[in-house]
């Protein structure tokens, strides 16, 4: 009748071996379950075709001095402004302590870099920044619409003013418009999505 109590191996067989089998089987089940879960989680990450569009090439020779273009990159806008001498001078003349956000916010540079204009551009004439307001993600207006009180960009949603280096100067936005990774492939082509360092490591021509 020992068989009826439902306790496997109640016949006094060495318990350690018995337990080992149960623990090993249970462990194998747990490991398998964990491994099976991974593909089902990973499938939600960006697919290869999406990643392939992770960097874009822009011909900036068509952007005249004193004008700007907005390009799509990773599903959002990027501003490329070909700045005039005055705009550059204006951006360079701002003292750091006049800035609400003193960080450079440049993906090419480490965090903590001061937000001088020089730290926000690779070449002074071209300012390249991501075009979503750091407040809640609206797209600020720029040249031809409303450049705000600091000649840069003005976000109509909640009234944030950016200067000619796209740094926040007044309004609710907490941070400067971030500078994406980019580098100049030639004098007139800019590649957005790779830093100069990554690019040269990967064998790209960096101008």
């Amino acid at each position: 009748m020992t068989e009826e109590n439902g306790a496997p191996g109640a016949d006094g067989q060495e318990p350690s071996r018995r337990d080992f089998i149960y623990i090993a089987a249970g462990g194998a089940a747990a490991v398998g379950g964990g491994l099976v879960a991974w593909p089902f989680i990973d499938q939600m990450n960006p697919a290869a075709d999406t990643l392939a569009l992770g960097s874009i090439r822009v011909d900036v020779s068509v952007v005249a001095v004193g004008s700007e273009v907005t390009v799509m990159w990773r599903g959002g806008p990027v501003f490329i402004r070909h700045r005039t001498e005055e705009e550059i001078a204006e951006a360079q003349s701002v003292e750091l302590d006049a800035l609400p956000d003193e960080e450079a916010r440049n993906d090419n540079l480490p965090t903590g870099t001061p937000g001088t204009d020089a730290n926000r551009v690779l070449r002074p004439e071209f300012l390249i920044v991501k075009g979503n307001c750091t407040h809640l993600g609206c797209v600020p207006l720029g040249l031809g619409a409303n450049t705000g009180d600091y000649d840069g960009w003005y976000c109509p949603c909640h009234g944030s003013h950016y200067d000619t280096s796209a740094r926040i100067r007044r309004g609710p936005a907490p941070e400067n418009l971030p500078v994406p990774d980019y580098f100049f492939e030639t004098e007139t082509t800019v590649k957005i999505g790779l830093s100069p360092e990554e690019a040269s490591n990967s064998g790209w021509a960096v101008s």
Binding site: W38, P39, F40, Q43, A47, A48, D49, T50
Partner: peptide
Amino acid sequence: AMHYVAHEDYAFESVQRITRDVPFG
């Protein structure tokens, strides 16, 4: 279903995209 597109112009391609580009698709 997170990746599939139920449209006669894209259904075939979207299934192929699943097997080619989606991680573990």
